[in-house]
C-alpha cells in the first residue's frame, strides 16, 4: 500500500503542475474579445465563463484548450452545432436575436453553458 500512496502523490503533483502551466499559458495568450465578439474557453471539461452575456449581433468564439476534443451544441441541437474541436480548435456563432441560449458538449453532456443575448 505504501508505494501506491506515493504513486498517487506523484500523479497529483503532475496534474497540479499541468493545471498551473496550462492556466498560465492561457492567461497570457487569452484575447478577451475578438472584433467586438466574445470568447468562451473550454478547459478542464468546463465552459468559462459558464454564462456569457453579450449584446445582440455578437459573434461568440469557443476555443478548446483541453487535451480532449469537445463540441459546442445548442440544447435544441439545431440552432448551432460545431464539429469536433480538437485542442486549440475554435468555433464561432453570431447571435442575431435576443434570448438565452443553453448549450452543451454533445460527447461530454455533463459540460453545459449559457449565452445570454440582450
Amino acid at each position: 500500500m505504501k508505494s501506491r500512496v506515493k504513486w498517487i502523490g506523484i500523479t497529483t503533483a503532475v496534474i497540479v503542475g499541468l493545471a498551473l502551466s496550462a492556466g498560465m499559458t492561457a492567461g497570457e495568450a487569452q484575447p478577451k474579445t475578438n472584433e467586438g465578439g466574445s470568447q468562451v474557453k473550454i478547459d478542464n471539461f468546463t465552459f468559462a465563463p459558464n454564462t456569457l452575456t453579450v449584446p445582440v449581433g455578437t459573434t461568440v468564439q469557443w476555443v478548446n484548450r483541453d487535451d480532449i476534443p469537445h463540441t459546442v451544441v445548442s440544447e435544441d441541437k439545431s440552432t448551432f452545432k460545431s464539429k469536433a474541436l480538437d485542442t486549440d480548435d475554435n468555433f464561432s456563432y453570431t447571435f442575431s436575436k435576443a434570448g438565452t441560449y443553453s448549450y452543451f458538449c454533445s460527447i461530454h453532456p455533463k459540460m453545459t453553458g449559457k449565452v445570454v443575448v440582450q
Binding site: T11, T12, V14, I15, A19, N44, F45, T46, I68
Partner: peptide, 18 residues
Amino acid sequence: PHPGAADSPGPMKVPAEQ
C-alpha cells in the same frame, strides 16, 4: 484519474516508465 481525484477526467500524464 481515479473518480474525483482531479478537476476533470482528462488524460493523465504519468512518468513514461509508468
